[in-house]
């Protein structure tokens, strides 16, 4: 399946509620980051968790976020203080606000 994003793209995590198992932590919802790795496509854990097939497979990316942005640190964190998370494509959208 084709991947919507490539390494270096700026993305924003969807700020959506989701009842049930999912692997997008709340503290990253609505936050912007950069794609730093592409792990290929995997069966969707949101379905696998309930005994369903989890198809079609979802591309999975490693996204890097600046800590100062994630925690609204207003300069309390250095720019090299980052957090990375592996997030599925359907939780990501292009980060238009920063002109990516």
């Amino acid at each position: 399946m084709s991947h919507r994003f490539k390494i270096g793209d700026r993305v924003r995590v969807r700020a959506d509620d989701h009842i049930g198992h999912h692997r997008t932590p709340a503290y990253l919802k609505g936050k912007s980051g950069v794609v730093v790795d592409d792990f290929g496509a995997w069966r969707n854990p949101e379905e696998l968790a309930y005994g369903k097939p989890g198809l079609p497979k979802q591309p999975l990316y490693m996204i890097k976020f600046e800590m100062d942005h994630v925690w609204a640190g207003r300069g309390a964190y250095a720019r090299h203080d980052t957090v990375t998370a592996d997030l599925y494509e359907h939780w990501l959208e292009p980060d238009r606000e920063t002109g990516a």
Binding site: R23, P25, Y27, M67, V70, W71, A72, G73, A76, Y77, A78, D81, T82, V83, T84, A85, D86
Partner: peptide, 10 residues
């Protein structure tokens, strides 16, 4: 799933 680096959050 994710790895944390540096400093406790506010």
């Amino acid at each position: 799933a994710g790895s944390l680096q540096a400093r406790p959050p506010r």
